[in-house]
């Protein structure tokens, strides 16, 4: 009787090639695991840190309806953070470790949240542009190779598309409102447009990470292709509500069927991502402070487990 055994690395490679999902108990290269932990925890942290700029406006929301929509939206973001932390935990890291990495700067979150939410129109712009950009990326990630991540994305995408529409509704209302409201809406678009485009990251021509992520089918489309998708759909949406995209070079290219845009300021992107954005310190300090303030509560909760009730 002869037996053949397949090396774990081949099982992994074959699954990836066949387009099957990798599940937590499947063999996987250490680099694949590390790449995913980095990416999923960064994604989770982005959801959680993103609660801050929007939370900044809950107490000033101008109607009961808008307050409820915003509260529900931020709850959704927190919920996404929870699924994503759980998805990352299947790779052998605890939430405590991930939080520590966030607080010590070892793990990152989407740099777009280092910008401030200055007026109520920013709540519209964040929903429309930031969630809008996130969806384009997340739609792709529904087909990512790691099963728990892909499944979390399916659920997240459904909720994000609500958020995007709600944000757009705020912008549309303000753009059609009083002159002051229109000005606030245009100002918010001016400030959030470039940061939203930069959410897709620099062109991945030169990125080593990207190359490997493509081979492992973690990433399925290039940063530039995703960015273009976002631009094409958003330019038209801006036109519909009478707002102007803040890019003098923007024009429709008949040949490609896409909108061409001017250059982005990648120096600013790198400066902000490396710590010198307007809110980097504030965001992390807030997270640390709240975490410290909650320590006694968590300790008490651990001591009295639910079975004692």
């Amino acid at each position: 009787m002869s037996t053949t055994t397949t090396a774990p690395v081949d099982i992994f490679t074959e699954k990836i090639e066949r387009g099957e999902n990798i599940e937590p108990r499947d063999p996987m290269p250490e680099e694949y695991r590390r790449h995913l932990i980095r990416q999923i925890s960064q994604h989770a942290h982005s959801e959680v840190i993103g609660m801050q700029p929007e939370g900044n406006w809950i107490t000033r929301a101008p109607s009961l309806r808008s307050k409820m929509i915003l509260l529900a939206k931020i709850q959704d973001e927190g919920g996404h953070g929870l699924y994503l932390y759980s998805a990352a935990e299947t790779l052998g890291i605890s939430r405590e470790e991930m939080i520590e990495q966030l607080q010590t700067g070892k793990a990152r979150y989407s740099s777009v949240f280092n910008y401030p939410a200055l007026t109520w129109a920013d709540i519209g712009a964040i929903g429309w542009l930031v969630d809008g950009a996130a969806i384009v990326n997340q739609v792709m990630l529904q087909r990512t190779s790691y099963g728990p991540y892909a499944r979390a994305m399916v659920r997240i995408c459904k909720e994000e598309s609500f958020h995007q529409r709600q944000g757009y509704e705020i912008m549309a209302k303000m753009a059609a409102g009083t002159p002051e409201q229109h000005e606030m809406a245009q100002d918010a678009l001016n400030r959030w447009w470039a940061p939203a485009l930069m959410m897709f990251g620099p062109s991945d021509k030169d990125s080593l990470h990207s190359k490997q992520a493509f081979l492992w089918k973690i990433k399925r489309e290039s940063n530039d292709a995703l960015r273009q998708k976002f631009i094409d759909k958003t330019v038209q949406q801006a036109e519909v509500i009478g707002l102007k995209i803040p890019d003098p070079d923007l024009r429709f290219n008949e040949e490609t069927g896409h909108y061409d845009t001017g250059p982005l300021n990648w120096d600013e992107f790198h400066r902000v991502i490396n710590g010198d954005g307007p809110c980097n310190r504030q965001r992390v300090e807030h997270h640390v402070r709240v975490h410290e303030e909650g320590r006694w509560v968590r300790e008490a909760a651990q001591k009295v487990l639910s079975f004692e009730f």
Binding site: M51, I58, K67, L71, A72, G78, G81, V290, E293, R298
Partner: peptide, 21 residues
Amino acid sequence: AELCSRGPFLEEDLALTNIAL
């Protein structure tokens, strides 16, 4: 609602804002 992003841990943050809602 003021407690949004200020809960002692994420699940409790969501619980408090859910009550606010």
